[in-house]
Design a protein around this nucleic acid. Structure first.
Lengths: 207, 207
DNA sequence: GTCTATACCTCGATAGAC
DNA sequence: GTCTATCGAGGTATAGAC
């Protein structure tokens, strides 16, 4: 974090491209093999350098993990806030949640290695890494809770379930699409429409 | 597999309890640390034996993985088929899917170490293990596809989305509840009601 | 059926040349 | 900034006593 700020302040005297490459390849390997199963030798190989060189850019495997995890949430949270902020002030709660769903899916599916790695390995990492990553997750969950509480107060949300259950169920469902979404079976916008229809109105005709 | 058949044919001359214990502890450790990060020494420790003794019951870590994965699907699929088969012949499609949801959640949440291990590590295991496990997954997916196709033909399913998308989205959402369901926040049957309401009728009032 | 002891391998990380 | 070489630790799996 501090490093990034410094890089922006002064002209870049180090090769930041290699650092980004390492993070990208690490995310891809964490996603497909898990954290423990991924060796730094593999990450180095995929990045076109030797294992020892990684330690010029990172202090430890653990630090790489932390940055991969954080980025997995950030790319989603930033897109969601952008989409919601772009709406007119008088937008309905349904319109706001619709924008959030589109933003969540966009960030999720366009940075699949970071987001899928996060989803897959979060439950399996050491407690220390979890603790460092927890706040960024909590903040994003809070953002959704506010969206849904607002919808409930406006009478737009069905009162059958608690907002916490809805948030957990819907985010969990959206997140899992990164495991099966196939961009060759239709446009992204068509996919978003289908998912929104299920989330908003369900799968069955009303009894 | 062959071993199991033999055990049922002749009176059990070996200690099958230790074998089951190893599988249970392996599932729990695979769930929380991942496959590669779980050592056979840990599995042995948790099972109350020494590492070398595992090889009396299993040929390899890989074989343990296979049995844990299969059981993760079987416990769910069996409960679902039971619940659906118990319905009267003239049940509506909605009633049949309702029974399937309840059965899926019941199996999923009552064997959390096996089901969560399966969900978490399936994307991270060696290709050979995946291939051996694929058929049992495919069969369960086919079962849901038939349920949903039937509902569509009867005009009970909303035609907004394809049955494949609905199946992937709903099963993914149901599966992820094992990561956040809290039995202390209400009864299982109340939980099932909330989830079914979201799946059937969505989260928002109709526009 | 479980034990101890250990072979053989690969890991994360470090040191120092270039 | 990247390399080679290597350390100590800990992994799966095996052998053979009990």
């Amino acid at each position: 974090m501090a490093t990034k700020i410094k890089e922006k302040m002064s002209p870049p005297e180090t090769d930041t491209a290699t650092r980004e490459r390492i993070l990208l390849e690490a995310a891809r390997l964490f996603r497909h093999h898990g954290y423990a199963a991924t060796t730094l030798r593999e990450v180095a190989d995929a990045s076109g350098i030797k294992a020892g060189s990684i330690y010029y850019h990172f202090e430890s495997k653990d630090q790489i993990l932390g940055e991969v995890l954080d980025k997995g949430i950030q790319v989603v949270a930033e897109t969601v806030r952008q989409r919601v902020d772009a709406l007119p002030a008088d937008a309905t709660a349904r319109e706001r949640v619709a924008a959030a769903i589109e933003g969540h899916l966009w960030g999720l599916l366009h940075h699949g290695d970071f987001t899928s790695a996060n989803i897959r390995i979060y439950g399996q990492i050491p407690a220390a890494a979890k603790n460092r990553h927890r706040k960024i997750r909590r903040d994003y969950a809070d953002y959704w809770d506010r969206l849904l509480e607002d919808a409930l107060e406006r009478g737009e949300l069905r009162p059958d379930s608690s907002t916490a259950v809805i948030r957990l169920f819907v985010i969990g469902a959206l997140n899992w699409t990164v495991e099966w979404y196939n961009p060759q079976k239709g446009s992204f916008q068509d996919f978003v429409k289908q998912i929104r229809a299920i989330v908003f109105d369900g799968t069955f005709v009303r009894e």
